[in-house]
């Protein structure tokens, strides 16, 4: 079973004007219904596979964003929703804005727009799902290597001795 069939989504507002945030919420409601991809909106980072993040990230939100990202289990994907999350947007010149989520955590998918349109966001999330699967496959092959490594651990110790 692929992880992308039932991913859980976490949303955080990192200093946006909340226009994108209400569009993220709108994407979960009947007209756009992102839940038809098996996605559930969760409030707990430790349950989440996809982080949808809005806003240009200010000084105070920086540590919160890092904290939330580190609490999410691997594999995980980050979707930057809206132009502010992509590069700071209209607030780029503000003294308190870092200018984009990728200044703080790695971003997998950029969805521009002011505000981001729900259709575009769904498109971005679906792209993120494919990346999530790739990351999981990579982890699997990585895990397989580790098991092989363990099998040879005796020889390794002998070599070192």
């Amino acid at each position: 079973m692929k992880l992308s069939k039932s991913p859980w989504l976490l949303h955080y507002d990192a200093s946006s004007c909340n226009g994108c945030d209400i569009e993220v919420l709108a994407a979960t409601t009947p007209r756009f219904d992102v839940e038809r991809f098996g996605i559930i909106n969760t409030g707990n980072p430790k349950h989440a596979d996809i982080l949808v993040i809005t806003g240009g990230v200010n000084n105070q939100a920086k540590s919160v964003v890092k904290q939330i990202y580190s609490q999410m289990p691997e594999p995980k994907v980050v979707v930057a929703a809206g132009i502010c999350a992509c590069d700071g947007g209209i607030f780029k010149d503000c003294y308190n804005i870092m200018g984009g989520v990728d200044k703080v955590i790695p971003v997998d998918v950029y969805v521009p727009g002011c505000a981001v349109r729900p259709e575009a966001l769904i498109d971005g999330v679906v792209k993120a799902l494919a990346i999530l699967d790739q990351k999981r496959d990579a982890m699997k092959s990585h895990a397989a290597c580790e098991i092989n490594y363990d099998k040879n651990s005796d020889t390794k110790e002998k070599n070192q001795a």
């Binding site: 200010n58 000084n59 105070q60 003294y95 308190n96 870092m98």
Partner: peptide, 9 residues
């Protein structure tokens, strides 16, 4: 209150 990146901007 705001803990801004620049003090007293």
């Amino acid at each position: 209150l705001y803990r801004t990146a620049v003090k007293a901007p």
